[in-house]
Nucleic acid binder design. Structure first.
Lengths: 245, 245
DNA sequence: GACCTGAGTCTTACGTTGTAAGACCAAACT
DNA sequence: AGTTTGGTCTTACAACGTAAGACTCAGGTC
């Protein structure tokens, strides 16, 4: 599908082409020549806009930007008439949760993204609007800046880490158990039992692990933990001001 | 430091050389020729043991194996005389916590590892002993297999994700604020405020974010959440068996 | 002894990658 | 007209992964 109508090159067009290649053929296929081919020009022409490093950095910028807009579009807070800060102490969790799920949705559409992001020396500036929104939500809900800061770290790392199927025993279970598999099961009784249980439970889902469910579970853990911290801090500060009165 | 006394090649020696190169010069430097140079032989000689893909897979296997032994060595459970299952309901958290911290320690010694692991199609078999130990600890403490399963996912993803400084504003703060930085601060008041607070707090630590502290905080969040689930499940099953009596 | 065999290593060679150097070209100024 | 200049293309090169096959040499067989 190359050969557009020869509109002029630009950094944006180069990055778009790179994204196209990455989505269709994976990051290793993103070479200067391949991208040039998509743009119907020569590889060396791209160097006026990016070299290889900048190309990958731009690609990162693009996905992260996509994540940011998806997360920001997700939930502009339900009606909330004349919202009083600290009036809706629990609602912030739903807002943050939905933003995280939206972000994860984008990651799933670009499964090559997490390792790419992880190799970049700097996070792209396109995350900042999302950070700002998350911090705003949390601070307005009565979490302090420290807690918001930690939340960013926790949630960001979750998002980066929750790509791979750390488990997934190659989907060749319940068939003829190979001798080595049997030996392993003997050596690791708990894992073997776990696999059985998981298989029993997984009736409906594809594969052994429902990664989406795992993600949502961990997300819930983290959000509940943050909320507990918020409440504790709020109680402490209330007690403090009460004793001051 | 090449030119060993010409002991014969072997898969193990090739992998050790690759690890050496990766630690000293990063993953991109791990080329067939570079590894061969360390082993004082020709690149093509390596192909009897690994090709490039297998080399990187073996490297992954090596780090993950290192993680597993470090985590397993960490805490063989404090004395615990004649331990009664479900007698020490909270102690499991410390065991798991120390294992996770040990695992992270290894990751920090090989900062190139997370993106490598994330690009591997399968997790290396060297994780399984660690998984087994973690599941054993949790199950014996009264967590069910489902909860142990989720814990593996949560903790594994944390470990993978918590590498990068998602934040770290290039360490050029408090100097002459560039006009663009000022514009950004205006557009993102909460982030600007957060940065101020973080700087104030970070007196002692290096950089803006104390990633180790963030990791430990999130780890605590997750472990506490898991413990809450364990307790809830234990209470429910106790009530169930009580009503059955 | 001579001979073969096969695992392990090395030589050579090819296609692909990123990119330096500079040629080329059209549009914009002087 | 001539000159400048920003953008594109040609050519070329070093480094990469690896296919093909030649070499080396310890071990077994006659």
């Amino acid at each position: 599908m190359p050969a557009r109508a020869k509109e002029p090159l630009s950094r944006a067009r180069v990055l778009a082409a790179a994204l196209e290649v990455a989505d269709a053929e994976g990051v290793p296929a993103v070479t200067m020549r391949r991208v040039a081919e998509v743009l119907d020009c020569e590889a060396m022409s791209l160097y006026h806009y990016v070299d290889k490093k900048a190309l990958l950095a731009g690609l990162t910028e693009a996905v992260v930007g996509e994540i940011a807009v998806a997360a920001l579009d997700a939930p502009p807070l339900p009606p909330s008439p004349a919202a009083d800060p600290a009036a809706d102490p629990a609602g912030w969790r739903d807002v943050v949760r939905r933003r995280c799920l939206a972000a994860r949705g984008v990651m799933l559409r670009h499964p090559w993204a997490p390792p790419l992001v992880a190799t970049q020396p700097q996070p792209p500036p396109t995350v900042y609007p999302l950070f700002e929104a998350l911090v705003a939500t949390m601070v307005e809900a009565g979490c302090g800046y420290e807690l918001a800061h930690r939340a960013i770290h926790s949630l960001g790392s979750m998002l980066l880490g929750f790509t791979q199927e750390l488990f997934e025993p190659t989907a060749d279970d319940e068939g003829v158990a190979s001798p080595q598999a049997e030996a392993m099961a003997l050596a690791m009784p708990h894992l073997a039992r776990l696999a059985e249980v998981a298989v029993h439970e997984a009736e409906g889902t594809i594969g052994l692990c429902d990664t989406q469910a795992e993600f949502e579970f961990t997300l819930g853990l983290v959000l509940d933990g943050l909320e507990a911290h918020r409440r504790a801090a709020a109680a402490a500060s209330a007690a403090g001001s009460a004793s001051a009165v």
